[in-house]
Measured scan of single mutants.
Amino acid sequence: FHVTIHVGDITFHIHGVSEEEVKKLEELVRRGADWREIKKTIEEIEK
């Protein structure tokens, strides 16, 4: 999957994300995680 996440003024683009990881990111966004937490999760996914 290709994912784009907008957190305030920050936009993250992630490529090659599995469905499971998409759900993890959706959950973070849904519970209102700040951009640092989302960035950390994205960095883990990209490894």
Rank of each mutant, 00 (worst) to 15 (best):
F1H: 12
F1Y: 12
F1L: 13
F1E: 07
F1K: 09
H2Q: 12
H2Y: 10
H2T: 15
H2W: 15
V3L: 13
V3A: 07
V3G: 05
T4N: 04
T4I: 14
T4L: 08
T4W: 10
T4Q: 07
T4F: 07
I5D: 00
I5S: 00
I5K: 00
I5R: 00
I5F: 06
I5A: 01
I5M: 07
I5Y: 03
H6S: 11
H6P: 03
H6L: 09
V7I: 13
V7Y: 14
V7W: 13
V7F: 13
V7D: 03
V7L: 12
G8K: 05
G8Q: 09
G8V: 04
G8R: 04
G8A: 07
G8F: 05
G8S: 06
D9M: 09
D9T: 10
D9W: 07
D9S: 10
D9R: 06
D9E: 12
D9V: 09
I10M: 14
T11V: 13
T11I: 13
T11W: 11
F12E: 01
F12T: 02
F12W: 12
F12Y: 12
F12A: 03
F12V: 09
H13I: 13
H13G: 02
H13T: 11
H13N: 11
I14Q: 01
I14P: 00
H15L: 10
H15N: 11
H15P: 03
G16I: 10
G16R: 05
G16P: 04
G16E: 05
V17L: 15
V17W: 13
V17E: 01
V17K: 02
V17Y: 12
V17F: 15
S18D: 06
S18R: 09
S18I: 04
S18G: 12
S18V: 04
S18N: 08
S18A: 07
E19T: 08
E19C: 06
E19Y: 14
E19R: 10
E20W: 11
E20V: 08
E20R: 10
E20M: 12
E21N: 15
E21M: 14
E21L: 12
E21C: 13
V22C: 06
V22N: 04
V22Q: 08
V22L: 14
K23R: 13
K23Y: 12
K23S: 09
K23D: 07
K23V: 09
K23N: 10
K24W: 10
K24G: 04
K24V: 13
K24C: 07
L25H: 00
L25E: 00
L25Q: 00
L25V: 05
L25D: 00
L25C: 01
E26H: 11
E26V: 07
E26P: 00
E26Y: 15
E26I: 10
E26G: 04
E26S: 06
E27Y: 06
E27G: 06
L28I: 05
L28M: 14
L28N: 01
L28F: 03
L28A: 05
L28V: 06
V29L: 11
V29E: 04
V29S: 04
V29Y: 05
V29T: 04
V29Q: 05
R30M: 14
R30Y: 08
R30G: 10
R30Q: 15
R30W: 07
R30F: 11
R30E: 14
R31V: 09
R31L: 13
R31K: 13
R31Q: 14
R31W: 06
G32N: 07
G32E: 05
G32T: 02
A33F: 02
A33C: 05
A33R: 02
A33M: 03
D34G: 08
D34K: 04
D34S: 09
D34A: 05
W35E: 08
W35T: 03
W35L: 12
W35A: 07
W35K: 02
W35F: 07
W35I: 13
R36F: 11
R36E: 15
R36V: 11
R36G: 11
E37V: 05
E37S: 03
E37P: 00
E37H: 02
I38Q: 00
K39E: 11
K39G: 05
K39A: 11
K40H: 08
K40Q: 13
K40N: 09
T41M: 15
T41G: 04
T41C: 13
T41V: 15
T41E: 09
T41P: 00
I42F: 04
I42L: 11
I42D: 00
I42R: 00
I42Q: 01
I42M: 05
I42V: 06
E43Y: 06
E43A: 08
E43W: 06
E43Q: 08
E44N: 04
E44W: 05
E44I: 04
E44G: 05
E44Y: 05
E44M: 07
E44P: 00
E44H: 04
I45C: 07
I45A: 03
I45P: 01
I45R: 01
I45V: 03
I45W: 15
E46I: 15
E46D: 09
K47S: 13
K47L: 13
K47W: 08
K47H: 10
K47M: 13
